[in-house]
Design a protein around this nucleic acid. Structure first.
Lengths: 299, 299
DNA sequence: GATAATGATAAGATTTTCCAATGGCTGCTC
DNA sequence: GAGCAGCCATTGGAAAATCTTATCATTATC
C-alpha cells in the first residue's frame, strides 16, 4: 500500500478550505486533475470517503473533518521544521507573515515595514490585517508567523511578548472643547461611536465605560477609526481612539481631543507567536524593533 | 526547489537511530544508495549539512540534532493521522504495539494476548518488554501504541488509565516459615534480593523498606523475579514479589511466603498512551479487558 | 433544452525514485 | 605496506509516480 505524503495533506487542506477542486488546485499551483487524483489517492490509502462530492458543492465527511484537523497539525509541524532550518541560516530571511489588528496597522505598519526591511535585508514581508480572532486562528494553523494584537490573548499554545501600552483619548466635536472631560458614567449617556462587532478595541472601549456587551444600546458603528473620527467631526457623537492614532486621524478633522485623568483607559499591544515556533529568537528581535517604534510614536 | 517529504524524514529518523547508512536502509526496507540519495536530497533542500560523515562513524550535526527532534514530532503526528483512520474503521485492527514492564509481563501477557486476539480478531499484536523509562520514550515517539506500567508516570503528554492494585508479598527460605513477618525496619537489616537498576519494582521495594537510593548497601541483584525467588530458595536472602507473580514463581521453589499486615505495600498497575492518540476509545476498551484479567489473577 | 460550471477520466510526457553494480576511501591485519 | 573488509558515494538504467492538456459526464440555471 502506498504511503501518505505531505503533498496530499496540503492538497486536502486547500480543498477543505476552498470547498472547490478548481480553486484549491489554483491555490496549490497545480491543475485540477492533479488535485483530484491526489485526493482520490488519499481516499484509497485511508480506505475512507473523506470528501463528499455533492452536485453543486464539495463538503467534508465526518471522518474527513477529523482527518483534516489532524492533518493540519502535521502541516504545522512541517512548517516549523522548515522554520527551524531558516533559523539556523543566520538572520531572519525569506517569507515572514505578520498579522496586525486594524486599530494598530495604519499607524504602526509603515515604520515597521521600513525598519524590518532595513534590519533584515533578505526578508519577504507579507502583512495581513484582520481582527484578533482570525489572527489567532491563522497563527495556530501556521498561516502566520506572528501577529500584533492587544494583550492578553490567553491562548495556551501562544507566546505573548508585550510591546507597549497605549492610552485611549476622547474625541469629540470641537464645540465641546471647553467642557469638562466626562467620566465613564457620563460617557455611557452620550452617543458613543464604536467600531463594528469583532474588533477588540470596541470591547476595550465598552469595558472602560462599563457597558455590558449584552446591554441593548444605540450605538453608531464605523468600520475604521478614521470613519469614526470623521463622524465625530460631523457632530454625530463622541468616540475613543488609541493614542497612536491621534496624529493621523485628527489632523484633518474638526474635532477636539481630551485625555482622561487617572485611571486612564489603556491597552497593552503585544506580539504573539506559537510557542513551538523555532524562529523564537528572531521573533524576539522583531518584537524589540517594533517595541522601539511603538514607544516613539506613543510619546 | 523540491519539497520535504515524509519519506525523507522517516529515512533520516532511521539514520539518526542506527548511525549507519546500511543498517538504516535495511530498517526502511530499501537499498543503501536509495537512502543515501534521499538524505542528500534532504540536505540540498535544507541547504544544511545534517549528517556528519566521519571516517568510521555517522553522526548528526548540531542542526541535524534539532532537525531530527522536530522531524520526529512530524512523524508522530503522521502516525496519529493514520491511527485516526484506523479508529474510524470500526474495531481495533492492524498493528498494535504494546509495551509491558518485565515484572508484569510474564504473568499478565499470556492471558492478555489471548483475550485481545479473541476480542479483536484483526489485531496484529506486537509486544515489547522493557523498563518504564524506555517504554515512555517509545510511547512519546510513537514507537508504541500503549504500555502497561506501574503508576503514576506523571508525564504531561500521557494519559494514565489505572488497571488494578497489587500487593507485595515477602518470599523467604522455607526454614523461616514460622518466624514473624518482619517490619520494614527489620527488612532493612536482612539481606534483601532485588532486581537490578532500572526496574521500577526495585524502587518500589526499596521505598517500602525506607531505604534511600543513595544509601550504600549490600544487595544481591537479579535480572528477573524468577531468578530472585530461586536465589531465596538457595538461602541467599529474602525478597519481595508482586502478588501476581506468586503462583508462577513460587511453585517450583523451596520457599515460604508471608503477607504483610496493613499498611500492606502495593503498587498500582495501569495502562498509558499518548493523550493525542486518536485510538483513545479503543485503548480504553483494551484497558478494560486487561483490568478484568488482572483482577482475576490478583485475587 | 441549450449553456455554463464542475469534477472525473484518459493519454502522454516528465520527473522522481529505486535497485544493482561499481568506485573510492579508510582503517585493520598479517 | 599490501591486501582486505567495511562503508558510503556515484552511475546507469528501469520502473513508478506525478503532472499537464484535452476531453467527457453530470447537473444546475436560464
Amino acid at each position: 500500500m502506498a504511503a501518505l505524503t505531505i503533498k496530499q495533506l496540503r492538497y486536502l487542506d486547500a480543498l477543505a478550505r476552498h470547498q472547490h477542486f478548481g480553486q484549491a488546485a489554483d491555490a496549490c499551483s497545480i491543475s485540477q486533475p492533479a488535485l483530484s487524483l491526489q485526493i482520490k489517492e488519499l481516499e484509497a490509502i485511508t480506505g475512507t470517503a473523506l470528501v463528499e462530492r455533492g452536485p453543486r458543492t464539495v463538503r467534508l465527511t465526518r471522518i474527513g473533518e477529523d482527518f483534516v484537523r489532524k492533518a493540519r497539525q502535521v502541516l504545522v509541524a512541517v512548517d516549523e521544521l522548515e522554520d527551524l532550518v531558516r533559523a539556523a541560516h543566520g538572520p531572519l530571511a525569506g517569507r515572514f507573515r505578520l498579522g496586525v489588528i486594524p486599530t494598530v496597522a495604519p499607524y504602526l505598519l509603515p515604520s515597521t515595514i521600513a525598519a524590518l526591511s532595513e534590519r533584515f535585508p533578505d526578508i519577504e514581508l507579507e502583512v495581513r490585517e484582520s481582527v484578533t480572532k482570525s489572527l489567532v486562528a491563522d497563527l495556530l494553523e501556521s498561516r502566520l508567523d506572528a501577529a500584533i494584537v492587544a494583550l492578553p490573548i490567553s491562548e495556551q499554545a501562544l507566546r505573548e511578548f508585550a510591546l507597549f501600552k497605549e492610552d485611549f483619548v476622547l474625541v469629540r466635536p470641537s464645540s465641546d472643547a471647553e467642557k469638562p472631560v466626562p467620566s465613564p458614567d457620563m460617557l455611557r449617556t452620550m452617543r458613543l461611536l464604536l467600531l463594528e462587532e469583532g474588533h477588540c478595541f470596541r470591547d476595550q472601549a465598552l469595558s472602560f465605560c462599563e457597558i455590558k456587551k449584552t446591554q441593548p444600546r444605540q450605538l453608531m458603528e464605523g468600520s475604521s477609526l478614521s470613519t469614526l473620527v470623521q463622524m465625530v467631526g460631523a457632530g454625530m457623537g463622541v468616540t475613543l481612539i488609541p493614542e497612536m492614532a491621534l496624529n493621523l486621524e485628527t489632523r484633518s478633522a474638526d474635532v477636539s481631543i481630551a485625555r482622561f485623568p487617572s485611571p486612564t483607559p489603556s491597552r497593552t499591544i503585544g506580539m504573539i507567536w506559537r510557542k513551538s515556533n523555532p524562529l523564537a529568537d528572531h521573533l524576539m528581535q522583531v518584537g524589540a524593533i517594533v517595541r522601539g517604534l511603538g514607544n516613539r510614536k506613543n510619546r
